[in-house]
């Protein structure tokens, strides 16, 4: 009974946070969804104009990942804004479940901004690259969900170090580039010339997720046991970021 009550309180708090920081602001300004989708769309346009048809599926998968990364990393500025400027996090610390449902609600709110861009790229992936298998889509959805979780955790963790909201203005684009564009997201891992570089690429959780998606779309072939390892790497990222975050927020100062 107690567990049920706690769960119900947690879900209410999560719902309230998602509505306040995601759904309702999105209704006020749906254009938020546009900006993170523009750069991936430009990539796709260039490749199509130059008739690089064979790399279009990579551009579409890369686009999906970039959109989710850009929206998820904005968690850092949202959480810092609520803490430093609005000070609403102190009020939400005193709700059912405390800051955990509040933070997940913020992350879900950012995901809402990603939905239109993801939907457009998913339709293009379906029609232009012919990816129709439910199994492939399940893998892609799982990989994107993992990226959302890992990058949101990282964003929240970074936000806890910010002293001023302007501290973060530089980090969001930087992290988007480091996680959403530079790793082998728009191209296969095999194109990295050096084995050392290929290993380094896995520092970014998006490398594993992208490789899972490339494989699900039939663009690359995975080695034996690689499938499980690719799921485990971003999951490990999530565990590490969550542990670091827990240490930061469980009892401030």
């Amino acid at each position: 009974m107690r567990v049920r009550g706690a769960l119900s309180g947690f879900l209410r708090s999560l719902y309230a946070s998602t509505m306040l920081f995601g759904v309702l602001p999105f209704k006020q300004n749906p254009f938020w969804a546009l900006s993170p989708a523009l750069a991936p769309f430009a990539f796709l346009l260039f490749l199509s104009i130059y008739r690089f048809q064979q790399v279009v599926p990579f551009a579409l998968i890369g686009g999906l990942i970039s959109i989710v990364v850009a929206n998820s990393i904005s968690m850092e500025s949202d959480a810092a804004f609520n803490r430093i400027v609005l000070r609403l996090d102190s009020m939400f610390a005193l709700t059912k479940g405390g800051l955990i449902p509040y933070a997940i609600g913020l992350a879900l709110g950012n995901l809402i901004n990603a939905v239109p861009g993801v939907a457009v790229f998913a339709v293009l992936l379906w029609t232009m690259a012919g990816i129709t298998s439910p199994q492939a889509w399940a893998t892609m959805l799982g990989a994107l969900t993992l990226i959302w979780a890992v990058v949101s955790l990282l964003g929240y963790l970074i936000s806890t170090y910010a002293r001023d909201i302007r501290d973060l203005w530089v980090y969001s684009p930087l992290m988007t580039a480091l996680l959403g564009y530079l790793p082998p997201v728009y191209y296969p891992l095999e194109l990295l010339p050096d084995p050392f570089l290929r290993a380094i690429a896995f520092i970014s959780p998006t490398t594993s997720a992208a490789r899972l998606m490339h494989s699900a779309a039939g663009l690359v072939k995975l080695g034996p046991g690689e499938f499980a390892v690719l799921w485990a790497i971003p999951a490990a990222h999530a565990v590490v970021f969550a542990a670091l975050l827990y240490r930061r927020v469980r009892r401030p100062i």
Binding site: L20, F21, L24, P25, Q28, N29, N82, V85, L86, R87, L88, S90, M91, L94
Partner: peptide
Amino acid sequence: ALVPQEGRPSNLN
């Protein structure tokens, strides 16, 4: 319950 010092509601809500 708490009203934090210099707190503000979100402008979009």
